[in-house]
Every structure is written in C-alpha cells, then in structure tokens.
Design a protein around this nucleic acid. Structure first.
Lengths: 211, 211, 211, 211
DNA sequence: CATGAATGAGAGTTCATTCAT
DNA sequence: GATGAATGAACTCTCATTCAT
C-alpha cells in the first residue's frame, strides 16, 4: 500500500517533469517546430518514455492547457462564490485573470496559441471536447458575473455572454500581442502594465454612469 | 515599353492569383497543414511556378499580411489626416478597423494568426523587419490619435502607445476568439456585433468624464 | 497528345521499375524486414518517389499480387473457354498453373506469402476486397472445370468448390514448402518436378475409374 | 532433491503458461503484430519475466513449433512402428496428421506460418537447426512409409521423399488456405472436411491400380 | 516562363529488450 | 525469481524545394 502510494506519486512527478520540459520547448519553438526528441532531451528522458505518460504529441500539448484551464475555473468560481458586490466581483475577476497569468505566463501563452491555432482543429475529439467544456465553463462563470451586475444596474445592459467573450478576447489579445512584440524585441516586457490598463479601460467601459 | 508594361501587369496579376489561392488554403488549413501543392492546385498552377513569384512558403504567407498591413496603414492615415476632432477621429479609426476586417476577413485572421504564431519567429530577417515596420507604423498612427485626444482632454491620460496596443489587442483578440469559436461550432458567427460592442466599450472606457 | 502518351508510358515504366525492385527486396527479406528505403535503393530512386506511385508499403506489396492474380485469371479463363474435354481441360489447367509459376516464381511466392500472412488482415478494405475478388474468381473458374468434369462422369463426385480449394492449396503448399526448404539449403530447387508430381497425383486422385 | 524437483516442475509449468499465452496472441495477431507486452498481459506476467524463460521473441515463437514438431514425430513414428500393411500405414499416417491438427489447430497454423515466413530465416542458427532436424525427421518417417509401400507394390513408383514432400505440402497448403479464407469470412470453417477430402484424393492418387 | 517529377531530410511513434529494485 | 519503467534504434511517410525539359 505504501509502495502503491509511492509509485503513484513518482508517476505523477514524472508527468510533471515531462510537462515542465514540454512547456519550455513548446514556448520557445511552438507546437510544430518542437519535436518530441527536443522535449525528451529537455526532460532528460528518452523519446519512448514520453509515450508512457502521454498518448501523443497533441495530448502532451493540450494537457498543458487543460491544467491551466482547470486552475482558471477554480479561481473564477471562487470569485463568483465569495464576492457579492458587482463592482468588487468584477475587480476580483480581473485580479484572478491577472494572477492566472502570473501563475505561469508560458502556459497561458501556450493556451492562447492553441486556442487560436490550426492545431485545435486536429485534436482528438475527446480532447477537443474537454478543452471546449472547460473553456465554456470559464466563459459561463464570467458571464454570470456580468448578468448579476447588469441586473443590479451596475453594468451597461448588453448580452452578458458577449461581455464575457470580450473580456476573454481582451485578455488573450493583450497576452498574445505582447508576446509577439517580445519576439521582435526581447527586452521589453510591458505585459503587466498593459494588461492592468486594458482591464481598467474595460471596467470603465462597461460601468453604468452613476450620478 | 508597351510590351514591358504588359509583362509587368501580367506578372502582377499572376502574383495576385497565387495570393488569392494561398489565402483560401491557409485559411482553411492553417500555415503548417497547407502544402504548396494545395496552393498550386487551388491557383491552377504547378508547384514550381509558385517559386517564380515567391521565394518560399513563408514569404508567400507573409505577403498576405504585408498587403493587408499596407491597406490598414492607408486607411488609418486617411483618418488621421482627414479628421480633426478627437472623438470623431476615434470613431473613424474604429470604423476603419471594422472596414478592414470586412474588406477581407480571411486575410485579417491570417495576419493575426501569423502575429501570434511560432511562424513569425522563423521569417527571414528582411521579411520580419518589413512586417515589424508596417505594424509599428499602424500602431504609431493609432497612438498619434490618442496623443492628440489626450492633449485635447478628451481621453484619459495614459501612455498613448499603451492605448494603441490595447486597441490593437482587442481587435486581434476578438477576431481570433470568434474564429476559434467557429472551429467548434461553425454555424455561429457573432464577430461583427461582438467587435462593435468591444469597440464601444473601449471608447467609453477611455473617454474622459464630461460634466 | 504525343507528349501525353509518352508521359503515360514513362509513368507506367517507372511503376514497373519500382515493382521490380519491390519484388526483389520483398522476396529476399519478406514484407516486414523490407524497408521502403531498401526498395528505393534497389530501384535507384529516393524513398519519396515510391509514394508518388504507390499509396503506401502495403499497396506496393499487394500490387505485386494483383498483377499476378490478373494473369492467373486470364490464363485460367482461356483454358476454360478453349478446351472442351474434361480431362484435357484439367491437364491444361494444371499446365497453366505451372506456367504461371514459371512466369515469375518470386511473385508467386510473394502472393502465397501474402495470402497466408497476418499482413492480409491489415490491408486497406479496398485492396483486400480486390484481392479477394480476384482470388474468388480464380477459384470459381477452377471449380467450373471440376463441375463440368463431374457432370461428364470423369471426376469423382465431390463438391467442385472443395476440389478447387484443394488444387489451389496443393499449388500454394508445394510452392511455399519448396521455397522454405531453399531457405535452409539454397542449392536444392526441386520445385518443378515436385509440382509436376503433385499435380499428377491429384489428377489420378480425382479421376473416375474407367473400366 | 525434492525441492529441486519441485522447482523444476514449477519452472516447466511457468514455461507452459507463457507458451499458452504466446500461442493465443500469435494466433490472433501474427508474429509481427504481437508484442511481448501482449503476451505478458495474456500470461498475467510482466514483460521482463518472459525473458527469464525465453531468450527472445523469436525463440518463444519457435518453441511453439518445436513442441508440436516433437508431437508430430512421436505420432508418425508410432504409426511406422505399429503398423505393417502399407495401405493401412498410409491410412494411419493421414489419421495421425489429422489428429495432430485437432490436438491444437492454432499451433499447427502457427507452425506452418513460421515455415512459410520470412521469420524462419532470421532465427538463431541453433534454433533453425533444431527445427530443421525435427522437420527432416518427420519427412523422413513419412518417406519411409512410402518407400515400403512402393517396395510392396502398393504405391506408384516415385521418389519417396518427393511423395513425403507432397503430402506435407498438401497438409500445410490446406491448413493455411482455409485459415486465410477465414480471415475474409470468419464464419466458414471447412477445414476438416477439406482436409479429409484432400487426403483421400492423395491416397487414391498414389495407389497402384489393382486388377 | 511554366512544368511537375523527383528529391531527401526529418518527424512521430512503436516495441524488443534491459536492469535497478 | 519477478517486476515494469525506461530505453533508443528503426520504421513509415510527408512535403518544401529544385531543375531538366
């Protein structure tokens, strides 16, 4: 039993080790240019070993997104459950998204790359469905916050799902655009201030005038 | 001379024919899955011919972005030159971006894909520089509009380049996210209303309170 | 037009060149041990070229059998159509099978290997169906000869399809067994006399006693 | 001693357990598609354990044939020793082959597959020699029966080794061909009646006319 | 100019075998 | 003896690019 436990822990650790290597390699080379051998080398394992833990390259790639999507959902739901006031809730939502980015910038960038790429189309149906479900869940939670805020007369009266889409788009847009700028000039990383400002503008943009 | 002219025109027409085919194929398959043979077939030419007009696959891909970036710059500068009032200018700017999308949605999506992809890194330095220059130019024009608006006390006082980055990010984020949603459910195309609303929120978000 | 003709001829010649190389390599190494690179080297082509003419390794392998099966069917039907007398027909049938073997022993051995191997299971459905159809056709033709002979009172009265199966089994059995013996001792090739004797015994064995 | 005995018995039992699993897996997937892990799983052992009992995959595969070849030899020699009359001897010989097939159809098919396959070539020299010796022994015993029968004027006067080869070929040919037909249509198993008829025809075919 | 057959480097993946536990 | 995680060589197939015609 103790042995079984230890084995399980070791297996999990090895999975993490591979995912860590994969994250690095995918981040620096992108999905297509990254080879399984690159990842194996980075993880100090042999190529064959990767396949003991992940069915194929796509699953390995997508598993990175799955983990962060789960984390996102956890954070978003926490916000929804803990906070009552609409404005504060939006504030916390935005903070949560910020935290999520800080938690692991490379993975977030990976996730948005996956989301905006041809690769998404080609994932196995099961994997695609899982990603879709988690994404939808995140968007739904965000939309719920907007719905309540609109009902409370705090946000402008627009379809909450559309507002959620826009917040999500703004998030991914800023992340990808800043990452893209760093391809050209690696020294400048304005992501955090830009993201802050973007969220601030968004909040002002949907706020009801209060007189 | 007349012959030379005609030759040149014909050469240009052939280029356009190839780019049209490339746009279609890249849009439906993405950069990596699209093969030069696919594009040749779509253009009703042989693979070898493509190389008489474009140095390689990447150049062909990037040329699509170059063209639309030129168009964007033309439209943005037009706005900057023709309009004087800050709010109206922003209004026109946003309309221009909207038009640009309508002008050729597939190419715009292509461009943002390129911008947010691994492929960008691997472009030849010359090509990368050209794209960078055009992008910077567009962003600069947008930033100029914000600078004037801030000076005129119409927009909140933040770094105009940051505001430009955010508007651009919002644009690309909405376009990519809606395109991504269509991968999962092809029937729903909410891009236009979502983009409208996004821009509206942005405008409200940077507007100075007027009392 | 002349050009089109020539191209077609050249294409066909190239196909033959590849099949010739494939036959040699498959014969000496068997399906699994033979690599596409081996075949390409033998054909003095690059690996990629093989795929311009054959969809994959299996199709290349099976194409060898398809050609010989077509030839077999041609020969068998010729016998059925030209000859009237039952005994002479059987005589001619057996001669035809002999000729078929002589026509290209390596391919015949290949075909029986395919037929008796795990590989058959894994062919694409279309290819499997084609091989099945041609095999069935051959067996049916043979069975027809037996049916007539039985009706004419010349052969023992047993199910003609069973007799056809047995003749075919005898043919393949002798071919494979002699080939197998040559793996152990390459110098001895008794195939022809053994096949002659086997067919003779078969003929005696199904002949009706005439008194 | 008692302990040593028990250990030996247990070792032998384990070997049998592995061979049983191997037989099943090789039969359903063929040599190449069957993996050592498949066999280990079927035997409810770990892959590493298989290597404690068999040097490698080939030896495991060949060991199946060795066992059945030993059984065949035992049965054939029994017939040769017990029976005196030539016709009855042939009758018993044929019955013995039939029994051998019934004893374990899967292994017989395996053995003929090995015999007619590329794999045979690649066995270790020692293993190949062992198989060769046992095969030769079987064929020699059969040939002896024919030799006596010819001397007694009961069978047609042909080289007894050739007759033995033909009987063996007929046996393997029918077994493989019927197995092959079952790949295409699993429901039809005509092996036994076909084998009976084939042997009957063979017996008639080599019988001397009696007047 | 246009063609398209040919190239060949390179990728993902499998699996027989080993060896530390 | 038994395990099973890890290895890494080897395979098939793809496709951007070239070049003789």
């Amino acid at each position: 039993m103790g042995i079984k436990e230890r084995k399980k822990r070791e297996r999990e650790r090895r999975r993490q080790q591979i995912m860590l290597a994969a994250k690095r390699v995918f981040s620096s080379k992108g999905f297509n240019r990254a080879t399984m051998e690159d990842i194996a080398r980075e993880a100090e394992l042999s190529p064959g070993t990767l396949y003991l833990y992940f069915k194929n390259k796509e699953e390995l790639y997508a598993s990175l997104s799955l983990r962060i999507l789960n984390y996102i959902n956890m954070r978003l739901e926490e916000v929804k459950d803990r906070e009552e006031d609409a404005d504060l809730r939006l504030e916390r939502l935005v903070e949560a998204m910020h935290d999520v980015y800080e938690f692991d910038p490379l993975i977030i960038i990976n996730m948005f790359h996956l989301q905006s790429s041809e690769t998404l189309k080609r994932l196995s149906p099961a994997l695609k469905a899982e990603i879709e479900t988690l994404s939808r869940q995140a968007l739904t939670t965000i939309a719920d916050v907007f719905r309540d805020g609109i009902a409370a007369g705090r946000f402008i009266d627009h379809h909450p799902v559309a507002l959620a889409d826009i917040l999500w788009s703004l998030f991914s847009g800023v992340v990808l655009w800043e990452a893209s700028k760093r391809i050209i000039d690696d020294s400048k990383d304005y992501l955090k201030p830009t993201l802050d400002l973007a969220f601030e503008i968004f909040q002002r943009g949907i706020a009801r005038d209060r007189h």
